[in-house]
């Protein structure tokens, strides 16, 4: 429903040429671009997904400690954070003037709990994804389950999180032909993202598995959404889907430390400022398709 099919037009920096440039950018982050949203809102645009997630975390910290002016909505996107409905346009203006000067700490692994999603790696596109990655299907499962994900943003449907964490060489395009029906609980990949369908819908993501035990959205539960922006997520293989070598999914043998990914090892050494375990920096990456998992869009087409 939402977004990009054409990454070449997406805003953002050019692909990082290499680890050195990544390090430079980490040291001196590109200042955010602040855009007006009506009279009392701001759209803060950042150079990278990492900076976006770090700014979002900082905004939540400041909201929690009362140092952020009251604002109705804080909505992260792929490279932006929307701040909408300040109490006045003067508050929005003041924050717009201040925010570029903030020292935003990079994301750290932190001590927050990690949501574990049991998954059976049995998706109909597992073989296709394995071919794109240049590995065996069971290796897709192993690497996916060894990755620490983070909810970058939500959208498309209540309970749907766009999870980042797979390094760029593992980003895959959407299916050429979308499915008319993707079952609830399907675990899919598209662009930079992994997602779990909170309900049955049409969809074009590459399905690698099924999460049969996890209820992503339940309005009778508090909170209704299992996944919110910033939530850390791990996929835990259900019995019989574990790595053939018996190495546990949380053994820390992540994609960055495994065999060379199909795109070469240009990003392998480029650990980001966040020191997030096996997560590679996203600076050089761009979602090849950040669209919602449904192709016939509710947002655009209705």
């Amino acid at each position: 429903m939402t977004a990009p099919a054409d990454p070449t037009a997406a805003p953002g920096p050019p692909a990082a040429p290499g680890p050195a440039a990544v390090a430079d950018r980490a040291a001196v982050p590109t200042p955010p671009v602040i855009r007006p949203v009506g009279s009392s809102g701001l759209l803060v645009e950042l150079a990278t997904a990492e900076q976006t997630e770090a700014l979002h975390a900082e905004l939540l910290r400041r909201r929690a400690d009362g140092s952020l002016p009251p604002v109705g909505e804080i909505v992260p996107g792929a490279r932006t954070v929307l701040l909408d409905e300040f109490g006045s346009s003067a508050q929005a203006r003041r924050l717009a003037a201040e925010l570029p000067g903030w020292q935003v700490p990079p994301l750290t692994a932190g001590s927050e709990t990690v949501v574990e999603i049991p998954v059976r790696y049995d998706g109909p596109d597992l073989a296709d994804v394995a071919a794109l990655w240049g590995v065996a299907p069971e290796e897709v499962a192993r690497r996916h389950a060894a990755t620490e994900f983070r909810v970058a943003f939500c959208g498309f449907a209540p309970g749907f999180g766009y999870l980042t964490g797979l390094p760029e060489p593992y980003h895959v395009p959407r299916r050429a032909t979308p499915r008319t029906r993707v079952p609830v609980g399907a675990v899919g990949l598209a662009g930079a993202y992994t997602g779990v369908y909170p309900r049955s819908s049409p969809g074009g993501w590459q399905l690698i598995g099924t999460a049969p035990e996890t209820v992503l959205w339940d309005t009778a539960r508090t909170p209704a959404a299992l996944l919110a922006p910033g939530t850390r997520v791990r996929f835990v293989p259900l019995d019989g889907d574990g790595p053939p070598d018996g190495d546990g999914p949380r053994g820390g043998d992540g994609p960055a430390d495994g065999d060379s990914p199909p795109g070469g090892d240009g990003t392998r050494d480029g650990r980001g400022p966040s020191d997030r375990g096996n997560r590679l920096p996203a600076e050089g990456s761009r979602p090849s398709d950040a669209d919602g998992p449904r192709t016939e869009g509710s947002g655009r087409d209705r």
Binding site: A9, G41, V81, P287
Partner: peptide, 15 residues
């Protein structure tokens, strides 16, 4: 041309 990376949409947006 093209599309944006997904971003937040406010009420009253003219998309």
């Amino acid at each position: 041309e093209g599309e944006l990376a997904s971003e937040g949409m406010p009420l009253g947006a003219i998309q």
